[in-house]
Nucleic acid binder design. Structure first.
Length: 333
DNA sequence: ATGATTTGACCTTG
DNA sequence: CAAGGTCAAATCAT
């Protein structure tokens, strides 16, 4: 609302009437369009950068973090601009029933919805698994699953439906996203590497546990770890600890200026290793030392701790004020 | 040969 | 029962 009226005013005049209202609508749409475009380009850039920097430790981590923050900023702006309070009168031409998908399960509500002219360039890899004619819409709806649906049990899906012919402009599409990605390579690869270097065989069970930790963010990881304190297998415990280290590595990067201090303990501190000064914000690979010893969690040496008796949440609180961390935690998807 | 897409059938939901 | 979502065999692209 505020944004809308500000836009209307900056559009010149603000002397009521339908023309001014439609001008503000246009501007509102233009802002959303530009933000969407920026978001898409950021996603593309992120994918390209991560591909180019793969395996380059600090550079990869820094690029992933910065681009994640840029992407998040776009998402926040889009969310603000799309909120009912700020949306213009509902004259947007959406495909008839597209806004009320009937899926009937917990994942029935899209976690994100965008209107875009380039529905396929969002930085993720999708595999089309269906297409359906939708009543009262001249355009079919296409169904996509994350390409890592099988390999990493990623449940992310999206639906794409053209909603307008463009009239000389590129056609517009409504894209609805369901379920969070839990396969992001930026998180998965360091986590898998950490697990592997701590001696965890990445069998199917371990993969699924690792995936569970990565996919659920800090809150989820906390709950999971509390549940899993009874695990008996050494390699399972190692896996859990290294997975948590991965999640925390990302978390720490995510709250940079929040506390105004960067004195947070470096997750990259190794256990009695030759000190190549660790990258200040390096991610997880360094959370486990090369010799495969137990990692440190944000400066807490867990090597000598019995994970089964160790409340990891307490470790979190020692290193961080838990409240400083966002609830939805996981920064990579 | 392998992986992605297409498309009709089947399933689920309201 | 109709509409939408998913599956899986057939087809296509590389």
């Amino acid at each position: 609302m505020q944004t809308q009226s500000r836009l209307a005013m900056s559009g010149g005049g603000g002397s009521g009437g339908s023309s001014s209202s439609s001008a503000s609508e246009d501007e509102h749409e233009a802002v959303i369009r530009e933000l969407t475009r920026g978001h898409e380009l950021t996603a593309q850039l992120r994918a390209e950068a991560l591909r180019a920097l793969r395996g380059q430790g600090q550079a990869e981590a820094t690029a992933a973090f910065i681009l994640q923050e840029v992407s998040r900023a776009f998402t926040v702006c889009l969310s603000i601009m799309s909120s009912p309070a700020r949306a213009p009168p509902p004259t947007m031409e959406m495909p008839a029933p597209a806004l009320a998908p009937r899926r009937g399960r917990d994942d029935s509500i899209p976690r994100e919805q965008r209107r875009t002219s380039s529905p396929h360039s969002d930085g993720y890899q999708w595999r089309k698994y269906g297409q359906k004619r939708i009543t009262k819409s001249p355009f079919p709806r296409c169904y996509y699953k994350c390409s890592f649906h099988r390999e990493r049990s990623c449940r992310a899906t999206k639906q794409v439906q053209q909603c307008s012919d463009g009239d000389g402009h590129p056609p517009q599409y409504v894209v609805m996203y369901f379920n969070e990605h839990t396969c992001d390579t930026a998180a998965w690869e360091p986590a898998a590497a950490a697990a592997a270097s701590s001696g965890v065989p990445l069998d199917d069970l371990s993969r699924s546990r690792l995936q569970a930790v990565l996919g659920q963010g800090q809150q989820g990881a906390r709950a999971l770890l509390l549940d899993e304190r009874g695990v008996q297998e050494e390699h399972e415990r190692r896996l859990l600890v290294s997975s948590l280290a991965c999640v925390l590595g990302g978390q720490q990067q995510q709250s940079p200026a929040g506390s105004g201090t960067t004195t947070a303990v470096d997750p990259a501190v190794n256990v009695g290793q030759e000190q190549e000064p660790p990258p200040p914000r390096a991610r997880t690979p360094a959370a486990v030392d090369a010799a495969g010893e137990m990692p440190r969690i944000i400066g807490v040496d867990v090597a000598g701790l019995d994970v089964m008796d160790y409340d990891v949440t307490d470790a979190l609180c020692l290193a961080h004020s838990y409240d400083d961390l966002p609830d939805d935690g996981f920064p990579f998807c």
